[in-house]
Design a protein around this nucleic acid. Structure first.
Lengths: 174, 174
DNA sequence: AGTATTTATTTCACCAGTGAAATATAAGCC
DNA sequence: GGCTTATATTTCACTGGTGAAATAAATACT
């Protein structure tokens, strides 16, 4: 696994050379795109690796976190598909493995019997509470040297970017 | 595909609830992590989709871009593995498909005959020059409403984050 | 010259996720 | 009651990527 720094340095040079052949290239924006993809990708890899030791994959973990942090500890497959960006096929499988491990329960909804209610179990809550704290040092180290101002700047800019991405998706759909 | 805005709103509430059960949770950092993963992931999806129409996958496209923007239009499998974060097995396959499409050429290096030299072809350069410009409007729209200051802030913060991630990886390795 | 190391490829079994189609159930609407 | 719609599951073929092991070829070490 090569350092991000190398990849970034390489990109910076590469884009300069690109600019010579393609003068109307939106340099800053292209650079930011690549940066987002590289840094986001690396964070994803890091998470995958951490979860591997717990025999979990990120979609399963995220599903569990969403359930944990939902007001009543429950949700439905459809809702979980939305928030995790997973297809229904995959969500069913995620449910299967989490049920098998006793971390969630599945049952028919009382009001609408088409719906399946997925609920985090006590064991599931214990699992989350045991998993998260060991991650804190690493999460803090990621943002070492970030002032409170910088953190809120980054947060603001990422949210702004997210808004634009939603806008683009909406235009595509229409 | 649900809007990012929904997922973010949901996360914001979820983290607040988490904080009640886990008081020493590094809230800001955790939020930033999730934001990076969500936004980065969405950008990745968008890229995949764009490339699909060109019968390309992102690792192939990135490989081609790196070759295009390298000083002499050439590289080696090992180097490309580093910069694309791909395994060697996969790099060989990427090479196969790009050769099959006539976008790159592969041959033994003159100096070190263990090495394979991968070079972008004239057709490969034409392909890149035809692919990129249609992407510019979208790339610009992603950062619509970003001032020059905001763009350079984001760039700086992402690079800082990248540096910290490299630092963490280095500590793990040692 | 002979062993060890590097670079790349091949094979292979596997993993996580996609997408479409078929099925089952249960509401909702005339 | 009968049609349509919504929700979830199952099956299945597929995609993109992983990781290990075996192989091949060339270079480096001593």
């Amino acid at each position: 696994m090569s350092r991000l720094g190398n990849c970034i340095a390489m990109m910076d040079e590469g884009i300069e050379r690109m600019l010579e052949a393609i003068p109307d290239l939106p340099v800053e924006q292209a650079r930011l795109c690549r940066l987002m993809l590289m840094v986001g990708g690396r964070m994803d890899e890091a998470l995958d690796e951490k979860l591997k030791s717990q025999q979990l994959i990120d979609s399963e973990f995220l599903t569990l976190l969403i359930l944990y942090s939902s007001p009543d500890g429950s949700s439905t497959p459809g809702e979980l598909c939305e928030f995790t960006s997973q297809g229904s096929t995959n969500m069913t499988r995620i449910g299967n493995t989490l049920v098998k491990r006793g971390l969630i329960s599945r049952g028919a909804s009382a009001e609408d019997r088409r719906r399946v209610v997925i609920r985090i179990t006590a064991a599931g809550r214990r699992f989350v509470l045991k998993m998260l704290p060991p991650m804190f040092p690493r999460v803090e180290a990621m943002f070492a040297g970030f002032s409170a101002t910088e953190r809120s700047q980054l947060s603001r800019l990422l949210r702004k970017l997210a808004k634009n991405l939603d806008q683009l998706d909406a235009e595509d759909a229409s």
